[in-house]
Design a protein around this nucleic acid. Structure first.
Lengths: 153, 153
DNA sequence: TATAGACCCTCCCATCATGGGAAGGTCAAG
DNA sequence: CTTGACCTTCCCATGATGGGAGGGTCTATA
């Protein structure tokens, strides 16, 4: 089948299939005489595997490792579980961090009248005037790569 | 003061200060004869405001609006609160999505022996073999921009 | 048979927030 | 006068994804 059908069946866009191939996550697809990529059920399976892993928030790098383990019939399940547990821990850390942000911001928002008057504890809080809030995650940043959720856009 | 000191005082890297200026989030900084940027306390205040907002997960676009509201002494606090509430709702959505992922993956991991044997429900789950898990967020994706937390790396 | 339209191809660019680094200018202290 | 710590601009990279240009291929239909 051609890339469009593989995309539909796996739920991975044609764009991303080509991308995964280009970064080496997938072996180069077979080609027909007209240079079109040619996919079979096994390819669709791999793509579906990748999509499910992405849906669980795994990064491309982790997915690469999972795919390798999947292909190795004799791998110890221990290795897979380790990747999963590490990933779960990372997600839980991110969740906790976001919950802190929500808590801090909610505190400020609760203190804000939200009417026509200009006084606003939210802006004051951002400006540094203490509102004795439960302290937000305040320093150091990180470009988290994987809050990737499932959604539109 | 020069950019380095402004960076230290505000907690925003020199790199990002220039970036914020270049995208118009901040007005172009004053310059000295030697073309070095020259910052004063007010600039440091704005930068600190930006950093705090980032720490609360606001996107650059939202921060731009918050800064404008901050500078407008007569804005109704209602407008600020609306931005904050929308942002809180977005973060809560992302948190919920990640919690779903963690739940699904935890279920699979719990079913996995994690020993030397090759059988692994985690890989089987990703491969599509049903494990009657509580169903993960399964389709549609979105490149969420702002799970930006505070962290090392 | 010619053509429309639905596919496919490769490339390049954009996003968002951030950092790395090159190539070069400026300044103060040794 | 050199060294080193600053600063400048400019380009590139990240990760996952989409948009689109410019062009080729195939099939159905007028």
């Amino acid at each position: 089948m051609r890339i469009g059908e593989a995309a539909t069946r796996s739920g991975v866009s044609a764009k991303m299939i080509r991308h995964y191939e280009s970064i080496g996550l997938l072996a180069p697809a077979a080609r027909r005489d007209n240079s079109y990529r040619d996919f079979d059920a096994r390819d669709v399976h791999d793509l579906t595997f990748i999509r499910r892993a992405r849906d669980l928030g795994f990064s491309i790098e982790e997915i690469g490792r999972l795919l390798a383990l999947w292909r190795d019939r004799d791998r110890p399940s221990r290795e897979v579980k380790e990747i999963a547990k590490t990933h779960i821990a990372e997600m839980e850390t991110r969740i906790a961090r976001m919950q802190e942000m929500v808590a801090t911001l909610s505190h400020l928002a609760e203190c804000c009248a939200g009417d026509e008057r200009p006084d606003c504890p939210i802006l004051s809080g951002l400006a540094g005037e203490q509102t004795k809030a439960p302290a937000a995650a305040s320093d150091a940043r990180q470009p988290d790569h994987a809050d990737q959720g499932a959604d539109q856009r």
